[in-house]
Design a protein around this nucleic acid. Sequence first.
DNA 1: TGAGTGACTGTAA
DNA 2: CTTACAGCCACTC
Length: 106
Amino acid sequence: MANEFYEQVYALVRLIPKGKVCSYGVIAEALGKFGAARQVGYALNKCPIDLPAHRVVNRKGNLSGKLNFGDDNMQKLLEAEGISVKNDQIVNFEQHFWDPIKELEI
DNA sequence: TGAGTGACTGTAA
DNA sequence: CTTACAGCCACTC
């Protein structure tokens, strides 16, 4: 690929602290692609094994790519990090939400 | 090149 | 809060 955007997405996802989650739109925004949330998801679709994609969810906190994440149970991984998941949706999403822009802005 | 697709989001109801 | 519609950008066929 050699797409810088993809690399940035991967790099940012890896920066997500354990026990925290983020939305596609925020990631796209942090990379300067305000309307490219779908591309973030597309980038994650490549899903490198070392990429904690389970920490990335949509704006509703729904595990959109749970099935696409792989054989592993995305919900289980989140719960292992202290994130409660109910009905494929993160509980207290705002509480676990991590804003890369705000964090990187420091 | 153009049409179809998608791990999305904002707005409206 | 959810559901439905439209807009959005990049990739695949």
